[in-house]
Design a protein around this nucleic acid. Structure first.
Lengths: 593, 593
DNA sequence: AATTTCACACCTAGGTGGAAACAT
DNA sequence: ATGTTTCCACCTAGGTGTGAAATT
C-alpha cells in the first residue's frame, strides 16, 4: 500500500522527482517526520506553507494508539471491530502548498478504511471531556459540535475535516451564548474532583505548623502542603492589594478540559503561563512576588482512556520537596507592579526529586494548585533570618488547577496546547482554515483576528518604549483571584519548617465562578508559605533560607534596565491569547477591600 | 565558463543529479547563497560538514570588489592589469564533505586566473593591517606570513590554501615567540591614531562641566564627551575596587587589527562583549555597574582600501545624544560582583539619533572608547534627584577602542568576527583545518582544543548549580583596566548636564601594555559621567533622570532568582574565547590600592 | 500494562555578515 | 564615489509534542 503526495506551488526549477515521494506506510522502518528532501519543500515555498509529506502515512505504536484512538470510542457509536493496533493514524497535518493539496494515491485496503474511521472518531473529541454526558449536550459526544455549536458548516471531507474539528474556533468559547450557557451549567470533571476532595478533607493539622525545624538547613527536604484556605485577617494595607489572572480565557479553556502540565526530568515550562496583575500596592514600597504549587488533595489519579476521564487511583505518593519560585525580577517596586504584569513564564516543573535547578518538583498524576504570593518588604533593616515582620498575601486562581503528567493523557489538552502555544506551532494543522473555508463563510482568518486585536488596543501593561507593535492581548481579560492573607509572624522560614507536615485542605468552593467570594475564606487561620527554598538567583544554586531572607532585607530598588525580553515572550502566545474575548473580569475578589 | 562541484559523503539515497550542480558564474542572475537543494546537503551530512556548493563561483558587485580585492593589491607585488570589476571572488567558503572535496570543472579563461590572483592576494592580509610596513616584517605585506611566521608549510593550493590563511591558528598569537615579539615591537595603526590624537589634544574644557542643565529633562539631547583622563583621588573604599577585562585576548586580537563595530538603525550588539570582573567591593554593599562609550578624538575616519589602513577624513561629525547603559541586573550586591563577572553582552549600538530603545548612539566612521563605571549605593535614603553623595569609579580598557562602522571596512576584522562570534558561524570556512592539514602537522583540531579547555578548568565565575558542562574560558585571561575615580559631588545628573560640552581628551598612554599604569592617571580632575539617560528597565522606556536616580536610592537587595541565561550566553563564544591563552593578567592597574 | 524517558523534527526569538539597493 | 539600509541565509538558544524505547 502506498501513498503519494504531490505538492503544488514549489519553485519550478527543482527536479520533479524530488517533488514526488512514495512512501510505503507498511514499511518496517518508521519514517521520522519528513525526510530531508521533503522538509526542503517548505523552504522553497512561502512562510505560510507547511509541507511535511512523509507524515501522510505512518504507523503508530501501542501507546499512541491507546491514547489517541481509544478515547474516541467512548463518544462515538460507530462500532470498532479491528484491533486498535492495526489502525493507522490519519496524517498528522494536512498538506497545503501555495497551489493546493492533492492526495494522489491511497490505494490501501482496510487500512484506509480504518484511517477514516479513526479520523471520524477523533472528531468526537471536540467537546470537553466529561465523566457523564451532561444534559443538553449531544450524547454522542459532540461529533457534530463543529457544525452545530460553532455554526460552521461541514468542512471539506478530506484533511480539513479533521483539521477543522480541532481548529481554534471549534475549541473556543467565542461568546456564542448557546454553548456558553451549556458549559456554565455543566459540572466539569476536574472541578468535581476538586470539590469532592476539598470537601472530604478535614482542616487537619494546620495548627501544628511549627514542628519541623529545617530553617537552618541549606536544602531541607520538605513535604508539600495542602492548600490552607483560612487566612488571617490581613493588615489594612495588604488587604487593599488585589490580584488578577491574565489570560483567564485561555486558562478557562484548559480548565474545562482538565488542565494537564507536562513534567520532565530537566524541567518543563507551564502552559498557559501564570500571569498576574497586581493593584492596590503602595507605589513607593518594595514587594517580592513569588509562586508555589501545592497539592489539591491526597489522591493519585489515572486517566481512563476508554471513558476519557480522570479517576482516582489511590492515595497520593509520598510528598516531594516543596519549592518556592521567586520571580526573577524581584524585588518589584509598587510602581512597577502597577504598570506591568508579573509573568511566571520561566517557572519549570519537574518530577526529579533531586533537581538542582530550583524547578518546582511535582508528582506525576497528581492534582496541583498554583499560588501566587506577594510579600511587602516592610522593614529594610530586617535581619537575614528573622522575617517575622513582613506581611504577605496569597492569591489562588482555581482555574489554574492542573494535573501533572509525564505525557498528555487527554488528547484535547494536547490539541489545545498545540493550538495555543507558539512553540508547538509545528504540530498545528496548517489547513485549519483553508482558502475555501474563508470564502464560504466570509469569515476572517485567525491571523486577521490576531492582527486586529494586536493593533486595536494600546499596551497598558508595558512602558511605551518598545515600538515593535507589541501590545496585543494587553487588555486581555483578567480575573481577580481569591486572596489569603496573613500579617502575623509566620515567615518563609516557617513555611520551610512547617512544610513537612501534611495539612488538611479545603478548596475555596465559591471561587470557581468569577466575581464571587465567600467570607469563609477570611477565616483567621494562618497561611504559612511552606516548602524548601529555591535556588539562588540566576546562578542555579539552591536558595538557602538565609539567601531568601537576605533578599528581603533592605529597601533596595530594582534598578532600571533596558530590555524586556522576559515580558515580550508570551505577549503573543498563539491565537488564543489574542482572539479570546476582550472582556476584563475586573470584579475584585478580595473581601478585604 | 562553468564550475561544477561534486560532494562526497552524502547520504547515498539522493539522486546523483541533485548532488551535482552546474552553475554558470557568468549568468546575469546572481545566485544568492547556496540554493535550497545544495543547502540541503548540509542537513544530510554530519554536523561538521559544511557544503554550500553554489558559492564556489559568483560575481560580486563593485562595492564588494573595492572592499575586498583592492586592498590586497597594495600588499601584493604581482601586477594587476585587468579591471577589478572583471575579477571573480574565490569561493567564499571551502567545500568540505565527509569524503573530501574535488573541483571537477573550472574551465575559465582569465577569470580563473584572476580568481587565483585575488586568492593569493587575500593571503597577504594575514598579518595585522599597518600604515607603514614595520621593520622586521615582510615588506611585501605578509604574503608568506602563513608559512613563515606560523611555521606552517605551504598548505594545499586549492581551497585549503585560502582557508588556512584565514584559519584561527593563523590569526591567533599562539604564544609562538617569534611572531609574538614582532607584534609587540610594532606600532599598530589604531594605536598610532589613538596616541597621536591623545597627545595632540589639550585637556580642554574639562573644568567647565557644569554649564548645561538637562537634569530635569526626560530626554535631554546631550553631546558625547571626550575621555577625561584625570580623576580625582577616590575614597579609600572605592580605591580598593579593581576591574579586569575578561576575554582580553580576544579584544587584543581585534585591537591589533583595528576593532570595528557595526552600528545599525535597529541596534547591533558589540562583539567582542565588554565583560568585566570586579574585586575589592564590599560584599554587603550595593553597586550599580554601567557603561558608556565616548569619543576618542574629534576626528572622522575613512578606510583606505588600497592601503588597508585608516586615515583621518576630517573633523568629527556633530556629537550625538550620549547614553548610559546601566547593566540590566543592577543593582548588584558586592557579594554578587565578587562571584560573577558583569557582562554587557546586551548593549546595542546604533546610528539612529532618534533611537527610542536606549541603545548607545554613535557616529559611523568615528573612533570610540567604551568605559565601565561602578557606583556604590552609599545612601539608601537618598532623594530621587540629589545623587551627590554616591561615589563611583570608571575603568577604561584601551584594547576595547573601536571604530563605529555601518559595514566592515577591514576584511580581517570581518574574518575574525566570523571566526569568533558564534552567531556568525554560518560564514565560517568549514575547511579551515582539513584532515590533510591535521595529518601533516600533527596538530590538534580547533575542536579538540576547545574541548580540552572546556573541561580542564573549573568554572569560577558561576555558582555550581548548572551542571551543563559550561565553564570553559572560566579562567580565561583578564587584564586589569585603568581606573578613574571620583568621590566628589559629580553625579549622574551632572554627567547629563555637562555632556553638552566637548571636552579635551588625553588617552592613557601607558595602558596599551598589560600590567602597567602611570601616575598621571590619578591627576585630580573630576571625571563626570556624562550623557543622556538610558531607557527604563526592561520596558523599553527612556530612563529619566529621576528613574536612574530612584534606582539608586535605598539599600534593597537583588532578590534571588533561579536562572542564569544572561550569563550563559557567551561563556563559549567561539574558538577564540577558549583557546586564547589561559593566562590571567592579574596585575591590578589601580594605583590607589 | 502503565508510565517515563529520550532523541528529534519543528517551532520562536533573535544575533550574524553578505549583497544589492539606496542615499548622499 | 562613498557610505547606509534592507533583506536574507544561516547561525545560537531553547521551548514544543511525537513515537519508540526504556522502565516500573
Amino acid at each position: 500500500m502506498q501513498w503519494s503526495v504531490s505538492c503544488y506551488g514549489l519553485i519550478p526549477d527543482r527536479e520533479p522527482a524530488a517533488h514526488h515521494t512514495n512512501i510505503d506506510i507498511r514499511s518496517s522502518s518508521y519514517i521520522p517526520r519528513a525526510p530531508a528532501h521533503c522538509r526542503n519543500f517548505r523552504r522553497l515555498e512561502t512562510q505560510a506553507v507547511s509541507c511535511t509529506c512523509a507524515l501522510l502515512s505512518r504507523t503508530i505504536d501501542r501507546t499512541a494508539l491507546r491514547r489517541r484512538i481509544m478515547p474516541t470510542l467512548h463518544g462515538k457509536p460507530a462500532p470498532m471491530t479491528s484491533e486498535p493496533a492495526d489502525w493507522l493514524l490519519p496524517p498528522r497535518r494536512g498538506v497545503r502548498t501555495a497551489g493546493g493539496t492533492k492526495l494522489i494515491g491511497g490505494a490501501g485496503g482496510d487500512s484506509e478504511t480504518v484511517e477514516w474511521r479513526s479520523r471520524e472518531a477523533e472528531r468526537s473529541k471536540l467537546l470537553p471531556v466529561r465523566v457523564e454526558t451532561p444534559p443538553g449536550m449531544n450524547p454522542a459526544g459532540g461529533v457534530l459540535a463543529t457544525a452545530s455549536t460553532m455554526e460552521y458548516s461541514t468542512p471539506k471531507p478530506q484533511l480539513s475535516s479533521r483539521a477543522n474539528a480541532f481548529s481554534i474556533a471549534a475549541l473556543i468559547s467565542t461568546g456564542n451564548s448557546k454553548e456558553k450557557e451549556i458549559q456554565e451549567n455543566t459540572i466539569k470533571p476536574l472541578e468535581q474532583f476538586v470539590e469532592k476532595s476539598s470537601c472530604s478533607q478535614p482542616l487537619g493539622d494546620l495548627s501544628s505548623l511549627e514542628l519541623g525545624d529545617y530553617s537552618g538547613s541549606a536544602s531541607p527536604v520538605c513535604t508539600e502542603p495542602l492548600i490552607p484556605t483560612t487566612p488571617t485577617v490581613p493588615s489594612a494595607e495588604m488587604a487593599k492589594i488585589s490580584c488578577s489572572l491574565e489570560t483567564k480565557e485561555l486558562w478557562d479553556k484548559f480548565h474545562e478540559l482538565g488542565t494537564e502540565m507536562i513534567i520532565t526530568k530537566s524541567g518543563r515550562r507551564m502552559f498557559p503561563t501564570i500571569r498576574v496583575s497586581l493593584s492596590g500596592v503602595d507605589p513607593e514600597a518594595k514587594y517580592i512576588v513569588l509562586m508555589d504549587i501545592v497539592s489539591v488533595d491526597n489522591k493519585r489519579y489515572r486517566y481512563a482512556y476508554h471513558r476519557s476521564s480522570w479517576l482516582v487511583a489511590g492515595k497520593a505518593d509520598p510528598p516531594l520537596p516543596a519549592r518556592l519560585y521567586v520571580h526573577p525580577d524581584c524585588p518589584f517596586t509598587g510602581e512597577q507592579l502597577l504598570k506591568q504584569m508579573v509573568s511566571f513564564e520561566k517557572v519549570k516543573l519537574t518530577n526529579n526529586e533531586l533537581d538542582q535547578h530550583g524547578h518546582i518538583i511535582l508528582n506525576s498524576m497528581h492534582k496541583y494548585q498554583p499560588r501566587v504570593h506577594i510579600i511587602k518588604k516592610k522593614d529594610h533593616t530586617a535581619s537575614l533570618v528573622n522575617l517575622k515582620s513582613e506581611e504577605f498575601r496569597t492569591f489562588i486562581f482555581p482555574e489554574t488547577v492542573f494535573t501533572a503528567v509525564t505525557a498528555y493523557q487527554n488528547q484535547l489538552i494536547t490539541k489545545l496546547k498545540i493550538d495555543s502555544n507558539p512553540f508547538a506551532k509545528g504540530f498545528r494543522d496548517s489547513s485549519r482554515l483553508t482558502d475555501m473555508e474563508r470564502y464560504c463563510f466570509q469569515e476572517e482568518s485567525v491571523e486577521n483576528l490576531i492582527q486586529k486585536h494586536t493593533y486595536a488596543r494600546s499596551p497598558i501593561r508595558t512602558y511605551g518604549g518598545e515600538d515593535d507593535g507589541l501590545g496585543d492581548e494587553s487588555q486581555a481579560s483578567q480575573t481577580r483571584g481569591s486572596a489569603f492573607t496573613t500579617s502575623d509572624n509566620l515567615t518563609l522560614s516557617t513555611w520551610v519548617a512547617s512544610s513537612s507536615n501534611f495539612s488538611g485542605f479545603q478548596h475555596p468552593q465559591s471561587l470557581t465562578a468569577i466575581s464571587t467570594s465567600t467570607a469563609s475564606l477570611a477565616a483567621p487561620i494562618p497561611h504559612p508559605i511552606q516548602g524548601s527554598l529555591p535556588p539562588y538567583s540566576r546562578i542555579g544554586m539552591p536558595l538557602t533560607p538565609s539567601a531568601i531572607a537576605s533578599s528581603m532585607q533592605g529597601s533596595g530598588p530594582t534598578f532600571p534596565t533596558f530590555h524586556m525580553p522576559r515580558y515580550h515572550h508570551y505577549f503573543q502566545q498563539g491565537p488564543y491569547a489574542a482572539i479570546q474575548g476582550l472582556r476584563h473580569s475586573s470584579a475584585v475578589m478580595t473581601h478585604f477591600v
